[in-house]
Every structure is written in C-alpha cells, then in structure tokens.
Amino acid sequence: MKKSILILLLFTISIFSSCNDEDDLFDINAVRTPPNITTPNNFADPNLNQQAKDLYDRLLDLTQRGISFGQQQPFGTGNNFPVPNQLDEDFFQVTGDYPAIVGFDLELIGLQPEVESPNVSILDVFINRFTEAIVEAHENGSIITISWHLVNPNSTNLGGDGSFNNVVSRMLEGGDFRQNYLSSLARAARLLNNLVDSQGNPIPVLFRPWHEMNGDFFFWGEGYRTTEEYIQLWKDTIRILSEDFNVHNLLYVYAPNLVSSPSEYLRNYPGDEFVDMLGVDVYDFRNGNFLSSALRNLQIVEDIATDKNMLFALTETGLENVVENNWWTQSLYRAIRSSSITYTMIWRNDMTTFFHAPFLGHPSEDNFKEFLDNETILLSNDIL
C-alpha cells in the first residue's frame, strides 16, 4: 500500500514538474520586440527582380507591426473539396477577410501529362488555373508562399519500401534522375514566370523548396542522402531556376521540421548567400508538447535569424481538425504572441475529415475569431 502511494506521489510530482517546465517557457509578461533586421546587400538570386526586393522590405515593415497570419490554399479548397463546383472558401466565410499569407504547392504540376487533348495542352490548362488562383490571392492583398512536394522520380509510394534511398544523389549532376529533375524545374519555371498581376508586374513569391529536410518522410530527408548532397540540391535549384530559366521573383526560405538544437537546425543549411529567410514547421500532434516545442523552436530560430540579420517565420503549423475548441487562444497565440516571427501559416482545409481552419458552424469558430482579433495578428486588410 505504501509503495502504491509512493508511486502515485512520484507520478503526480512528475506531472506537475512537466507542467511547470512548460509554464516556465511561457512568460505572460513577455513583450514582442522584433529586432531591427535590415535589407541584405545580396539575395540568393543575384538578379532578383524589384518586386521581390520590395516584398522583402514590406516584410521588414510588417514584422515590426505584427504577425501576418496565413493558410495553405484557402481559395477554392474548402471543406467540400474535392467535389467539383462545390468548394467553400472557409477562411473568408468565417472571418470576412483573406489571409495575409496564402500558401500553394507545386506537387501536382509534376503529375500533369504533356499531351494535348485534343488541341489543348493539359499541362498548360493546369498552369493557367494555378496562375489564376495565385493572381486572385495576390489581388486580394495576400502575400504568396509556395512549397514544393516534388513527386518521387523513383516511385509514387510514400516511402518505407526503399524508394527514397539515394534519390537526391541520382538527381545531381551525372545521376540517372538528372533529366527528370531538370524537367521538373522547367515545369516549375513555366508556372513561376507565368505569375503576373493585372498591371503586368511579376508577382513575388516566398519559395520554400525541400522543406522539413531533417525529417524522414520525404526522399530529400535525413537518412536518404548526405548533407552535402542536400546542400548541392538546394544550390542547383537556385542556380538552374535563375540562370537557365530566368526565374527572378523568388525569395528562398529554408525551413526544417521542429528541431532540438541550433546545430540540428543548421545541419543542412546551404549558407547565408543561398537563403533569404528562415522558417520552421511545428504542428500540434496532441501529445501535450505543442506549446513547449513551439516556444523552444521559435527561440532557436529567432537567435539564429537575429545573428544572421534575417527574417524568420513559423512556416507551417496547425492542429488537424481543430479538436480543441480554444486551441487558437490557449495554444497557438500563447506560442507566438511574443515571438518576432514575420508570419505563421496553418495548413489547408480539404474536407470535413481533414481541415486546419474552422468552417461555418465549427465549435472553434468563435475562438478563432477571438485569436484573430488580437492586434498583433494581421490579415489581408491589415497589411494593405
């Protein structure tokens, strides 16, 4: 009996201890004081166009004002997706405003056939529809970010069968997947160079390729290639897009998955001259660690970014299906309220079984609005 009481006591102490550790990380009195980051002398793309340079300066200003809030694909991918012609713009319906940051991904461009049917290129139709969505987001006042979940040239499987092994090395110069990689870049370039607003100006993009490289869920992740191979892939991507395909509207964002130390964050870092902005992805996996993980990771990245005179962001976050009704104010806001991040972005809404922003009638809707009402959180109308 005494032994049982002792075990219970030790368990209780450990629970309170872990809670106190998290509470120690969260300082209710902390004030958001972003450092004065300055415009770099050089960007990753030496021939970066003026629109992208202007975006960087705009981000510098916005960072001092607050945290721009965004969502992946909030336009036409609502909770009824992918039912044709029945798409809801959940974010706008709930908030009456557009996100300050809107995310897109280039994954599907790799799956479009080149064939014409009958006299129309299916790839061109896809690129034009993709372009229209980005132009719409841009015209609505949102800043555009694009990631790239490149389809594995070795297999369409999602790993676990050895198909991820050595893909990156085979994409580098002399590898048997080199032509596939170059063709993928050519497709991406066609789309990126197609991004022009109604005034005929190029639309600048925060480009986030090869992200979460410290995880093991993509073929460019840890264990499937060497650090040197990853860095070469990153450098090749910039050089080929800018030099061979004249893509000059991209600010390059380096964004690992959550890390435990500065050394892990920088393990695959290609160098200051090849990166324009830093980021990190931290999701809530309902294990009780989100707040502490987010606070630690944001501090790690903020220290590195300040030292390097760079902006940084919480590039992906969210709680799948928002199963905690007060998650917005009690978890996400507490994690970011005093951080110097430029922006944060939740993932997309696909359907009622997979979403990251509440749709009309969802029980977290009011808490979401309360979160957005904080003067620190900026939406599209706040950044115009």
Rank of each mutant, 00 (worst) to 15 (best):
P118T: 05
N157V: 07
S147K: 12
R239K: 14
S17W: 13
L150P: 01
N165R: 09
Q71R: 02
N152D: 14
D272H: 06
S155P: 06
K308F: 06
F217K: 07
I7P: 01
N367S: 05
Y252W: 15
P209T: 13
F43N: 04
E116P: 01
N119I: 06
L10V: 14
L250G: 06
G162A: 14
H356F: 15
F16D: 04
A313F: 05
L332M: 12
A189Y: 15
Q72P: 00
N41S: 13
R296I: 11
M345V: 01
P74S: 12
D105L: 06
E302D: 15
N157A: 14
K235Y: 03
E139H: 10
L191A: 04
P204L: 08
E264K: 10
L25R: 15
D21P: 00
N85H: 09
T352D: 03
I203T: 13
D373K: 11
T226Y: 02
Q64L: 07
E114T: 13
K3P: 01
A30L: 08
T376W: 06
V275M: 05
F92I: 07
G103V: 00
G141D: 10
S198Q: 12
R187V: 06
L378W: 08
I336S: 11
D197H: 12
N249L: 04
P204D: 05
L87C: 02
T315G: 06
N325R: 01
D276W: 08
L185D: 04
Q93E: 13
A52L: 05
G174F: 06
T237F: 12
L314R: 13
E302F: 06
G159H: 10
T352Q: 01
Q199M: 13
N47K: 13
T376I: 15
D124R: 07
G78D: 00
E264F: 07
S242M: 08
V135Y: 08
P209N: 12
R32P: 07
V196I: 15
A189G: 12
D21N: 07
D161M: 11
L191G: 05
P256Y: 10
I13H: 03
K53H: 08
D366I: 14
Q299V: 02
V120D: 08
C19A: 08
